[in-house]
Design a protein around this nucleic acid. Sequence first.
DNA 1: GCAGAACTCCACCACGTGGTGGAACTTGAA
DNA 2: TTCAAGTTCCACCACGTGGTGGAGTTCTGC
Lengths: 195, 195
Amino acid sequence: MPEGYATGRATKQSIVESAAAAFAQKGFYGASLRSIAREAGVDHSTLLHHFGNKTALLLAVIEWHDSRSMPEELPETIDAEYIADGFAATAARNAETPGLVQLLSVLTAEAGAENHPARETLQRRHGLVTALIAWTIRTQRAEHEGHDDDLSPEDRAAVVVASWEGLQVYDALHPGQLDVPALVRAMLRDAFLLD
Amino acid sequence: MPEGYATGRATKQSIVESAAAAFAQKGFYGASLRSIAREAGVDHSTLLHHFGNKTALLLAVIEWHDSRSMPEELPETIDAEYIADGFAATAARNAETPGLVQLLSVLTAEAGAENHPARETLQRRHGLVTALIAWTIRTQRAEHEGHDDDLSPEDRAAVVVASWEGLQVYDALHPGQLDVPALVRAMLRDAFLLD
DNA sequence: GCAGAACTCCACCACGTGGTGGAACTTGAA
DNA sequence: TTCAAGTTCCACCACGTGGTGGAGTTCTGC
């Protein structure tokens, strides 16, 4: 069922992982296909055989990154607790893979430029997460009437996402100063009116 | 008193401005000295004559950026209102110069990598702003006893700075969706126990 | 075991990279 | 007006860039 041969798939995978590290360190523009290929132990033309061009490789890296954050199976009922736990788990896992966080931080910042090749992809990604959080906030507010937040669910969700990413960048620049997972967890439970 | 001739100083300035735009678009590694020099209307060896190497140019760009955010003169008494207004004014000015915001966002994200040439500079910059906010929070809490924040002034300040930067990145990726200056202002007034 | 698809590497291309050296020109204070 | 200091560009260097074409090898379904 999967495309290609097993050897090829393994090579692709190791290239993606090398690329993730390289983009995280040097950004999309600063990382070179040759250095990525060298790290993966293949010729750079092998890399191009598998991915066609540099932009396609970048998108493959993002896709791979996201696939790591998805839960294997969904529970029967989706509620705010479950979503909050899911995001908190992601935050905790991120803390253990600083390279991947660095990758997304740099790419997201770079993608603020209008002609960045991953801009659309990252916008969609962002939009999805924000929408999920906004939906959760909305349903939670409907159940708990007495909240005192003067931001709309969408705005609050955007602020949560932005703060989360900002905290990760802050943490990379000042390692060990903050307990990012705890702060994210607190922020989510606050936005979701939990406890 | 100033070093060099007037012509040289003018050239340096236009190089710095071109470099700021280029680093914002492509990051430190992705922007080339030749493209920066071309944009400034000089040969790339002229650029190197003035700045010596690429890293020195980057540091000059950051220094120039920061000099734009400094108030010309300090008031007689510094209080929380004044500081909050200062940051709010910066946030509002940032909204009108997206290129510079983009610059610092990309550089800050890149500087999460330990060997980035501007890492130390940006750490110090960050530390200064965070310390000022933390000091303000501390003095304000001493005056208004009944606050309900369970974060220390330092942690709260770090969260404020991180959220601020995250909001700017978010805004660059989703232009016009958020009123960033208003959100920053609200965040500061909240942290400073104002109103 | 065979055929054909998939894979991998080598050689090459045109061009861009940061940086150097030096020669010609411009500036501004004495 | 003089002249050293400052400024600018041109030519060059060794090397890195993303990408192409093709030849040789390895894998897998039949």
